[in-house]
């Protein structure tokens, strides 16, 4: 099978400091890759390089585009990259406020990506928005409310609906459950797991929370000081960690 995303030797430096270095992996269609590590491990830098928010200093990030086959998204033109970002890619921010338009109704937030790719029928757009609010368990009577009137968990679910409405082929998630109460986290994880399974989503999920990758990710990469120190199937890595750092990470978390 052909990978959807092929990452080779991606390196990003901030002056003398390493953001991430020589990271390589392939992501296959329908697969969820977890990237775990402590803060400062380079996992967010890596995610931003992959999603086109940061330009890496070296490496290749090749994506299987609909029209042109495998294309390096680092060297493609900015208009092409922005087009990908609003069609085949989606990005779920840790802070829902970064991913939502707070002055626009929930329905408008969900409909924006549809309108961005040319939807011009109000009734159809609204029906899609209602459908997606339902799928992320937001009462459809809230469709005309602004996200500022929503709880943190609802905002995050709305952000997910807004991202998934155009059926993107690759979803980037940056600490999708971060900052939420534990009970809210559990519900969101359940929802995400259902969506991943039902839609066959391909995703890259960055988190410091091993419970998140255990539930969502098929494979994972462990990062430390900008380097990938261990990679493999999620259950294998978590149940039988090989690298000393992973062992530390697993034991410290599982004791909590």
């Amino acid at each position: 099978m052909k990978p959807l995303l092929s990452v080779r030797d991606v390196t990003k430096r901030y002056g003398a400091r390493i953001g991430c270095a020589d990271v390589s992996f392939d992501l296959y269609p329908g697969e969820v890759m977890g990237i775990v590590g402590e803060s400062g491990s380079g996992k967010s830098t890596l995610l931003n390089c992959l999603a086109g928010h940061l330009a890496p200093d070296a490496g290749l990030v090749r994506f299987d585009t609909r029209d042109g086959g495998m294309r390096d998204t680092i060297t493609m033109s900015e208009p092409e990259r922005r087009m990908l970002a609003r069609t085949d890619w989606a990005f779920v921010h840790q802070n829902a406020r970064d991913g939502l338009r707070m002055s626009v109704s929930a329905g408008g937030n969900v409909g924006e990506r549809l309108m961005a790719v040319g939807a011009r029928n109000y009734g159809t757009i609204r029906a899609s928005a209602e459908d997606w609010l339902g799928r992320v368990e937001i009462d459809t009577t809230r469709i005309d409310d602004r996200p500022s009137a929503f709880s943190g968990g609802m905002q995050q679910r709305l952000q997910i609906a807004r991202n998934l409405v155009t059926a993107p082929r690759l979803v980037f998630m940056d600490e999708p459950t971060g900052g939420l109460d534990v009970s809210v986290q559990a519900r969101l994880l359940d929802l995400l797991r259902g969506l991943v399974r039902d839609m066959g989503l391909s995703a890259i999920v960055v988190t410091h929370d091993l419970a998140v990758v255990r539930l969502l990710a098929h494979r994972l990469i462990v990062m430390k000081d900008g380097h990938a120190v261990e990679a493999g199937l999620t259950d294998q890595v978590l149940d039988d960690p090989q690298h000393a750092y992973t062992q530390l990470l697993v034991s410290s978390v599982l004791q909590v």
């Binding site: 208009p79 922005r82 329905g107 408008g108 409909g111 924006e112 309108m115 005309d144």
Partner: peptide, 22 residues
């Protein structure tokens, strides 16, 4: 400016959508 350059005008219809919704 970037949106004009790249003809990313979906947002204009969001404004009209909000009008109709309200």
């Amino acid at each position: 400016r970037k949106m004009h350059e790249l003809e990313e005008y979906g947002l204009m219809h969001v404004k009209l959508y909000e009008d109709i919704a309200r």
